[in-house]
Write a protein that binds this DNA or RNA. Structure first.
Lengths: 277, 277
DNA sequence: TATACTAATGACTGGTCGGTCATTTGTCAA
DNA sequence: TTGACAAATGACCGACCAGTCATTAGTATA
């Protein structure tokens, strides 16, 4: 086994047990039976290691479930096979799955957050494709909620076999979740995550928006909006962004004028992030 | 604001942002504008701080949702109100909610794991009570699965408003989750988590509150509360706990004096469990 | 004002951290 | 056997960690 592989496996095990922050490079190298210096021949830093781990296993997980969805022709069993693939992948790489669950909202490292968000979007896309294929227009208004339900199911039930040492029948589990997903897809009628809302989660946090972009969008919205309150608020906020002059309380108030207007919700979100409110 | 409170609030904010491990005592004291030594006048250690935080907020969260379930009489809206209470509590204490989600499977500290497990069981018990009340024998075989679904819903949807800066209509969200829960309760037929399996997860030794702890909290509340009814009820209950003398009806009456007072909800919940009412 | 007390400080300790690098060890072909 | 080169080591670095404690500042009483 290559030295790099040896380090990866030791790190995997220790990160799963203790978490990333709480595991030192020293511990990893001792566990792998090599010197500390040797670690830095294979990896530039401890951060590069965790990013490598996550890249490797996330791509494996994602291609696992994507393969099932893309290649399974029997629609009647697709949901079942999907859950089976997901749980088997989690079980096969249970150490990684533990890290994934522990670190997914934990880490300080900016690159890792972006990465996680990126992979999360990929998973969403696969689930969405599956739901559209199975239920088509029937889930037109509920599909984004269904994505969240499916992910919620996987998350809670994963806990059972990852963190308790109980042997589970994953086939039975998948069967049971497939039924639940089917029920929700067929009968659920209320929408919470609209197309628009879903987009607003998944556009933004990736790259930082520039001042110029913000102002451009504001100007666009000023043209669109007819109500005077919203319009005036937008003008004032535009001036404030070009040359900060308003007190935080006023800015907050102006933003709250916008937050419920259908055409201004998005810019309100953007501004709140941009102004770090 | 007391020094202890100041430290708690600074720590809450920093833990939410960076996680427990990644936040140093130095940072907390700098943020609170006090010296490092002063920290150790209020807390024996950094561990004691996080345990205190978790105890405080988990009890508040649990008594919040318990209060809704116990006191809401309109069964038709109970699920909705339950989700509303849970999400409002998360939103009100969003810094804590972030810590809770980040650290719930993260921590190395043994005491914290036991504590989390204990609180998780309390939440299960409340959800279970609600499901049994609403659906009775109908969910006899699926109730434990339903608990996990409810927790899964809360977990995934919490992410939306905790980690993205998007304003959400929590009423609409609760409504939508209530519908989903209803659908699953009414139509789901496959069982995965059997009574037996559920028990095997929860075998771990339970954490019992001692008489001394209860009395200590009551004494603390007596100081805080101004209203005479609540205050007198607390004094009587304290005497009863030290030396049982009151009839069950009287005890029940005294407890119901407390159950709606914001500062006494928690002790009311504790006493109800302790006295097994 | 003098005294007695508590509250608060921050320099300090003993460690551990991630990361570096001069040195040693191992492995070749010549 | 030698010399050239790569692989591997672990002592070492500066930074930071949780936690301590001698000292000082602040306050209330006599």
């Amino acid at each position: 086994m290559s030295k790099k592989q040896l380090i990866l496996e030791s790190a995997l095990e220790l990160f799963a047990k203790q978490g990333f922050e709480a595991t030192s490079v020293q511990q990893i190298t001792e566990h792998a039976g090599i010197s500390k210096g040797a670690f830095y021949l294979s990896f530039k830093s401890k951060d590069e290691l965790i990013i490598g781990l996550i890249d490797h296993f996330m791509m494996e997980f994602i291609s696992d479930i994507d393969h099932v969805v893309k290649n399974h022709n029997d629609d009647k069993n697709l949901l079942n096979e999907f859950y089976k693939a997901a749980f088997h992948s989690f079980q096969k790489h249970s150490d990684f799955a533990k890290i994934f669950i522990k670190e997914q909202s934990q880490t300080v490292n900016e690159e890792l957050i972006t990465k996680m968000h990126h992979y999360d979007k990929l998973i969403d896309k696969i689930i969405l494709g599956m739901l559209e294929r199975l239920y088509g227009g029937e889930v037109r208004h509920t599909k984004y909620d269904l994505i969240y339900c499916v992910k919620g199911f996987i998350h809670t039930y994963s806990h059972l076999f990852l963190f308790f040492n109980v042997p589970l029948d994953l086939n039975q589990l998948s069967q049971s979740l497939a039924e639940k997903t089917y029920l929700l897809a067929r009968h659920s009628e209320t929408t919470f995550i609209s197309e628009e809302l879903y987009q607003s989660f998944n556009e933004m946090p990736d790259e930082q928006v520039t001042k110029e972009q913000i102002i451009e969008i504001i100007e666009q919205k000023i043209e669109e909006v007819e109500e005077s309150t919203e319009s005036e608020s937008l003008v004032l906020l535009k001036q404030h962004i070009q040359k900060p002059s308003l007190s935080p309380a006023i800015v907050k108030g102006l933003l709250s004028n916008l937050k419920d207007h259908p055409k201004c919700k998005q810019i309100s979100y953007l501004l709140r992030n941009y102004l770090e409110l």
